[in-house]
Structures are given as C-alpha cells and as structure tokens.
Computed example of a mutant assay.
Amino acid sequence: MPDKHAGKEVTYSISELAQEFDITARTIRYYEDEGLISPTREGQNRIYSHKDKIRLKLTLRGKRLGFSLAEIRELFDMYDTDRSSRTQLLSMVQLIESKREALRQQAEDIQMVLAELEAAERRCAGALDNLGDQGGLSQLG
C-alpha cells in the first residue's frame, strides 16, 4: 500500500500527538511554551513535525526518569548546537550519574524513615499491650 504522505513530511495535529502519548493538549501546549517543541502554525492550528514528535517523546521519557524540563531543554539546546551529539551524550551521562546518586540517597532516606516508623509502631503496640493489661482500651480516651 503506498504511503499517503509520500514526498512530503509527515505532520501531526495536537490531538493526534495527545492521543498517541496519552497526554492532554494542554500538556503539549505547555511544553511548547517551555520551548521544548516548536510547531508551525496554519491559522489557529498547530502543525507538529516529526522532530516535534521525537522531542515530545524524549521529553516525556526524561520526565519519567526524573529530569526537569530545564535539564531536558538544556540537552535539546546542546544537541541543536553540536550535531555530533558528543557534548549532549557527555552531559546526559553526567545527568544520569547525578540522578542515580539522588535516587540512591532518597532510597537510603526512605529506608531510615521506614525503620523509624517500624520502631514507632512497635512502641505503640507495646503501649497498647500495657493498656490492655490495665483494663482495656477505654483508658486511651
């Protein structure tokens, strides 16, 4: 079956991208306002290129990985400046290392909080047991 777009660049509407990525049109417009994508206009309609679609996909992936929009924009800017993408890749490696370390620290903090919660729960259970020995739960109120 021949490609209906043969000979011309494939473009997308905001509703097509919103449906494909399961996000709202408002989110797409926000990313446009943030300078992450830059559709062309035909009257009031936004026309998104394949590049915009790829950038939107990378933005969503970056957000899932914990990157800020500023960090994502910085990577896009570096890529636009250095098409060899060496600078972008080196920066990405540094960002990944930074995110990994932040996540490790968060995991450590979470483990500490969980241990504190378990200790508090044990103390509460012990206090309840002591109250039970002294005539029931009516003494809590």
Rank of each mutant, 00 (worst) to 15 (best):
A6G: 05
K8F: 12
K8L: 10
K8S: 10
V10T: 12
V10E: 11
Y12L: 01
S13K: 11
S13T: 15
E16W: 02
E16Y: 00
E16G: 04
L17Y: 07
L17C: 06
A18V: 08
A18L: 02
A18E: 02
A18W: 01
Q19V: 01
Q19G: 12
Q19A: 12
E20D: 11
F21N: 04
I23A: 01
I23G: 03
A25S: 14
R26H: 10
Y30R: 03
Y31M: 00
E32R: 06
E32M: 02
S38W: 00
S38C: 11
S38F: 13
R41C: 06
E42D: 14
E42N: 12
E42C: 00
G43W: 01
G43D: 06
Q44H: 09
N45S: 15
N45M: 12
Y48K: 03
S49E: 02
H50Y: 13
I54Q: 15
I54S: 11
R55K: 10
K57T: 01
L58F: 01
L58D: 04
T59D: 07
T59Q: 08
T59P: 03
K63I: 14
K63S: 01
L65W: 08
L65T: 00
L65A: 08
G66W: 02
G66S: 04
S68V: 08
E71W: 00
I72C: 03
I72N: 01
R73C: 03
E74L: 05
E74M: 10
E74P: 00
L75T: 08
L75V: 08
F76T: 07
D77H: 04
D77S: 13
Y79T: 09
T81F: 01
D82S: 08
D82M: 00
D82W: 04
S84T: 15
S85I: 03
S85V: 09
R86D: 11
T87W: 02
Q88A: 15
Q88M: 15
L89G: 03
L90Q: 10
S91G: 14
S91I: 05
S91L: 09
S91A: 10
V93H: 10
L95S: 01
E97L: 06
S98A: 10
S98N: 11
R100H: 13
E101W: 06
A102Q: 13
A102Y: 02
L103M: 12
L103I: 13
R104M: 05
R104F: 12
Q105E: 15
A107M: 13
A107S: 12
E108L: 10
Q111D: 15
Q111I: 06
V113C: 10
E116C: 08
E116N: 15
L117W: 04
L117T: 09
E118I: 05
E118V: 04
E121Y: 11
R122Y: 07
R122T: 12
A125F: 05
